[in-house]
Nucleic acid binder design. Sequence first.
DNA 1: ACATTAAGTGATT
DNA 2: AATCACTTAATGT
Length: 209
Amino acid sequence: MTDQLGVTLAGLGLEPELIAELEQTGRLMRVGEDVPLISPGMRAMALPLVIEGTLRIMREDAEGNEIFLYYLEGGDACAMSISCCLGTQISQFKAVAETDTVLWMVPMNLVDEWMGKYRSFRKFVIDSYQQRFDELMQTVDSIAFMNMDERLMRYLLDKKQSSGSYVIHKTHEQIAQELNTSRVVVSRLLKKLEREEKVELFRNRVEVM
DNA sequence: ACATTAAGTGATT
DNA sequence: AATCACTTAATGT
C-alpha cells in the first residue's frame, strides 16, 4: 500500500518538523460514500484533511433543505472546521463523502498551536481559507445572479472537474436536492442541455460532453 | 406479472 | 421556476 498520506503532505509545502507532528498526532479516518461527516450543530473535534476522495460541503436549514456549496478534494483542508475551532466550535455546514474518502484528522487544539509555531501551516490555513472563500463567492453569485440553467451547468462542470470524470452518477432528484430545486425543473433543463449537445442523459447517469 | 423508482411532458400558477 | 398530474421507461422481486 502506498503512503498516500506522505504524498499528500509532501505536496503542501510544509516544514519537515510539522509533517512529522502531523503524522504523529493525526489519525486516519475512512468515510464511505454518502456518509455524512458532520451536520449543522455538531461540534467539530478535529480538522479533516482530505487525502483521497471528495467531500461535498453543503448548507442545510432546519427543514432539511440543502444547497451544494463546493467540493473538497485531495490536499484540501476543511476551512470551515477551522472557523469552528477558533470560534463557536459549532458547525454551520454539512459535509458528506461524495465518494469513499480517506481523511487525516488533526486535533483542533494542535491546529491552534501550529498556527503560531509554523509559518508554513499558518500560510496553508490562510490560503485554504482564501480558496474556500472564493469558491463560496462563486456559489453566492450563481445563486443570486444566474438562471437555473446556468447554475445547473456550473454544477455539472464543477462535479466533472472535482471527480476527474465526465460521468456523473446521480439521479435528477439528487441533483435537484443539491441545487435546492425540484426534480421536474432539473429534468427539463437537462433535456434542454441534451438538445444543445452539452450533455448526454441516461438512467442514474449524466455525461458531460 | 407486479411494484417501485427514474425520467419526460403538458398545463397551470 | 414551482407544482400537479399523468405517462413512459427501466429495474427489482
